[in-house]
Write a protein that binds this DNA or RNA. Sequence first.
DNA 1: TTATGTGAACGCATTCACAGCC
DNA 2: GGCTGTGAATGCGTTCACATAA
Lengths: 209, 209
Amino acid sequence: MKRIADSTIRRLSLYLRFLEEFEARGLSTISSDELAARGGTTSAQVRKDLSFFGSFGKRGLGYSVPELSSRLRKILGLEREWRVIIIGAGKIGAALAQYNGFAERGFRITAIYDNDPRKIGRDVDGLTIRALDCLPTDRESTEAEIAVIAVPASAAQATADLVVDAGIRAIMSFAPRRLTVPEEVSVKMINMAMELEGLSFALTNRGSA
Amino acid sequence: MKRIADSTIRRLSLYLRFLEEFEARGLSTISSDELAARGGTTSAQVRKDLSFFGSFGKRGLGYSVPELSSRLRKILGLEREWRVIIIGAGKIGAALAQYNGFAERGFRITAIYDNDPRKIGRDVDGLTIRALDCLPTDRESTEAEIAVIAVPASAAQATADLVVDAGIRAIMSFAPRRLTVPEEVSVKMINMAMELEGLSFALTNRGSA
DNA sequence: TTATGTGAACGCATTCACAGCC
DNA sequence: GGCTGTGAATGCGTTCACATAA
């Protein structure tokens, strides 16, 4: 398969959301124009994004809503459930464990870890916080596929190494640090403070920018 | 000022973090190469990013750590404190209110709002959850500059409209929906479920991608 | 000699425009 | 006629390479 841009994948996710809304409303077809309007992009962009994966539409008509959403779910790998573990039971980690938005999208949180003895054994939304040392053995049985790293920046790289050694190939990290990982491991960074700084920049330079 | 790419601003944020670490360790100069290595980019990229704003280095020597970090703080608008309000006291909103990472970077959370009567009046980390209706009048006195939208997707646009009407010009949204706002309003989207879907895609198509 | 600053070259994502099919 | 699918054109961020200054 040809290399696909990250931005394309992010848009596919977005299209799928709209398709699911349309599906819920019982609509049967949709045009690239309608998808584009909802996603804040152009119809050409929508068609190009889809074209990397095949031809799903009918000329003169548009796309079948159930068919296209099924194709997108397949492309994105969302036909199965993914097992997610959270490392770090601080404010962010604990909030994520309690957040329902992941499960709704097929990402089931199976465990939460920390290395602070005061936190280990405590309960977070039905999950018991486990010692980080347990991770390698735990994984042999649970086979989690995705790790969320929500530890302090200074511990992020060591945590990533541990997670990769345990056989995990996908990481979502909240630490403001670039993680060095083998190339077969995918990493997504989420940095809220950095986004706020982007807003600070925009506010400071508005008018002239 | 010339239009600056988002990616440049995000990298400036990152450089600033490294500079602060260097400053804390008492180092006085740093080269574009060292900054690049830490940030996972190239020295040419670092120099180009900085060149949009001026010439801060000394040829043959590098950059003065305290001077460059001060310049970056000024560029990013981080010499002042920003007042942030959170809309939506659900899992995400409440977690953000308790999270210390923002205050550390100069973003002070001054209020949290919800429109669920059962939540209004409750306390979250020292802040009392206020009725959403209070926002317009509150803002006249508090003059918050940034709003974090952590409401369900279906309410996101209405919330954005309310916030914009109240005079706020910067929004960080956690709702998986494109927000339509006047062009003078800056919006940053954070969508964790979408990032997870990106990982799902990578895992599903690994090897062939 | 060393490392910055920057115009020029490059590569890649987006946009255009139209041929192709319903 | 309407809308998709796609090569070609465009625009833009990144990389290169070297003149410039310490």
